[in-house]
Nucleic acid binder design. Structure first.
Length: 170
DNA sequence: CGCCTTTGACCGGCGC
DNA sequence: GCGCCGGTCAAAGGCG
C-alpha cells in the first residue's frame, strides 16, 4: 500500500490552514475542546474532523505513532500513539467511528510527567486556538459550542465521555 | 544522517 | 485448557 513515510507528529495546525478553514461559513474547531473542559487523564473524548482533514484530530501535543491494528467488527483500524516527549508514559488510542467517518474517539492512557506538563499542554492548546482563529483567548466566547455533553463512561471509572463540537460562526 | 511511520509478529488477558 | 482478540514491540524502509 502506498503510504506517506515521514513524520506524523500531531501538533497544532499551522496558521497556513486557517485561510482554507475560514473560507467555509463555519468549521469545527477541535483543539479548543480541552481548553474549555480538560478531560481526566486518562480519559476519553470524541472529536470531529473537518471533511478532507487528513490526520486524526489534534490536541496540541506531539504524538509518535507506535502501532495500528484493524479491530474485529470495526471498519477502520485503531491507531496507537505515544507521547513524543522522552520519559513520558502518556499514550492515546484513536478509533474512527464507523457510522461517522469524521468523528474520532480518542482514548487517553497513562499520564504525562507532571502537572507542569499538563499546564504546558493547556498553554499549547490555547496557542493553537489563537493561531487557528487569530483571536485572543478572551474572545473564545465568539465560538458557539453547538454540542457539549458530558456523560459517565459506561466502561471505565477513570473518566467521562466528552462529545463535543465547537463550531466557529462567521 | 537521524528520526519517524509502517507492518508483521509476539505476548498477555479474557471468554467459552 | 484452548482459542481469540487487543495492545505492544522490533526491524526495515522512507523522508526531510
Amino acid at each position: 500500500m502506498m503510504m506517506s513515510k515521514g513524520k506524523e507528529i500531531i501538533h497544532p495546525a499551522p496558521s497556513s490552514s486557517t485561510a482554507s478553514q475560514q473560507e467555509s461559513p463555519h468549521f469545527s474547531l477541535i483543539v479548543a475542546l480541552r481548553v474549555v473542559t480538560a478531560p481526566p487523564n486518562p480519559g476519553r473524548e470524541y472529536v470531529e474532523a473537518r471533511p478532507g482533514e487528513k490526520i486524526p484530530p489534534e490536541d496540541g501535543l506531539s504524538w509518535r505513532k507506535y502501532g495500528q491494528r484493524l479491530v474485529l467488527g470495526e471498519k477502520y483500524p485503531r491507531k496507537y500513539y505515544r507521547c513524543a516527549r522522552c520519559c513520558c508514559g502518556a499514550t492515546k488510542m484513536i478509533r474512527r467511528i464507523d457510522t461517522e467517518p469524521l468523528t474520532f474517539e480518542v482514548t487517553y492512557g497513562g499520564s504525562h510527567n507532571s502537572d507542569q506538563e499538563n499546564n504546558n499542554q493547556n498553554e499549547q492548546l490555547l496557542l493553537a486556538v489563537q493561531t487557528q482563529v487569530g483571536r485572543t483567548v478572551g474572545e473564545l466566547s465568539d465560538f458557539y459550542i453547538r454540542e457539549m455533553v458530558s456523560t459517565p463512561n459506561n466502561s471505565s471509572s477513570t473518566g467521562v465521555v466528552f462529545s463535543t463540537r465547537i463550531q466557529y460562526l462567521t
